[in-house]
Measured scan of single mutants.
Amino acid sequence: LSIEDFTQAFGMTPAAFSALPRWKQQNLKKEKGLF
């Protein structure tokens, strides 16, 4: 994903996403259907 696509999909920047705990990242991916 481009940074723009990522931000649009997750509502945050890739840097903010990577700062989240691993379990939170997994849950967000599942919610968006990317996992």
Rank of each mutant, 00 (worst) to 15 (best):
A16Q: 14
S2V: 00
G33R: 06
L34E: 14
A9L: 15
F17K: 11
Q26M: 08
W23L: 06
Q26L: 08
A19G: 11
A16L: 03
G11Y: 02
W23H: 15
G11E: 10
A9F: 03
T13R: 00
Q25K: 01
K32A: 12
Q25W: 02
A16K: 12
Q26I: 14
Q25A: 05
K30L: 10
R22H: 14
F35T: 13
R22D: 15
K29N: 02
Q26S: 05
F6K: 00
P21A: 04
M12S: 03
L20Y: 01
Q26W: 07
D5I: 04
T7R: 07
E4L: 02
K30S: 08
F6S: 09
P14N: 05
I3F: 14
F10Q: 04
E4D: 08
L34K: 08
F35W: 09
A15F: 01
S2H: 03
P14C: 05
G11K: 02
L34I: 15
G33V: 06
S2G: 08
F6W: 03
F10S: 07
L1M: 15
P14R: 08
G33F: 02
L28A: 02
F6G: 00
L28V: 06
L20N: 13
A19I: 04
T13S: 10
L1K: 03
G33D: 15
K24E: 15
S2Y: 01
K30D: 07
T13M: 00
T13F: 00
L1S: 13
E4W: 01
E31V: 06
F6C: 14
L1T: 07
L28I: 11
E31P: 01
T13L: 03
A15S: 12
E4Q: 05
A16R: 10
K29S: 10
T13N: 11
N27L: 14
L28S: 00
L1R: 06
E31S: 09
S18G: 10
L28M: 05
Q8K: 15
K24F: 01
M12I: 04
G11H: 00
T7M: 08
D5E: 10
W23F: 08
K30I: 14
S2R: 11
S2D: 13
W23Y: 14
N27W: 11
A9S: 05
L34D: 09
P21V: 02
A16E: 15
A15G: 09
A19T: 11
M12H: 01
K24H: 10
A9H: 12
Q26F: 13
A19H: 08
S18D: 13
N27T: 12
L1G: 11
F10I: 13
F6L: 06
S18Y: 08
G11P: 00
E4S: 08
I3V: 09
P21Q: 02
Q26A: 12
N27F: 14
A15K: 11
S18T: 06
A15H: 04
D5V: 01
T7N: 11
G33L: 05
R22Y: 10
W23S: 13
L20R: 03
K24D: 11
F17M: 03
K30G: 07
P21I: 00
P14E: 14
K32T: 03
P14H: 03
A16P: 01
M12A: 03
K30M: 11
F10A: 07
T13Y: 00
Q8A: 10
F10K: 07
Q8C: 08
D5G: 03
S2A: 05
W23I: 08
L20K: 10
R22I: 13
K24V: 08
K29E: 12
D5L: 01
G33Q: 12
F10H: 09
R22F: 14
S18P: 02
L20A: 02
L34W: 13
D5P: 00
R22K: 15
A15L: 09
T13P: 04
M12C: 01
E4K: 12
K24C: 08
N27Q: 15
I3L: 09
K32W: 08
E31I: 15
A16V: 05
F35H: 12
L20Q: 06
A15D: 13
K32G: 08
K29W: 07
K29I: 12
R22A: 15
P21E: 04
R22C: 13
I3T: 09
E31A: 06
L34Y: 08
K24W: 03
A19L: 12
L28K: 02
M12R: 02
G11T: 02
K29H: 05
A19R: 11
F6I: 09
D5K: 10
W23D: 15
A16T: 11
K24P: 02
E4P: 08
K29G: 05
L1N: 15
A15Y: 01
G11R: 02
G11D: 03
S18I: 03
A15E: 14
D5H: 06
F17Y: 10
I3W: 07
G33M: 06
L20E: 13
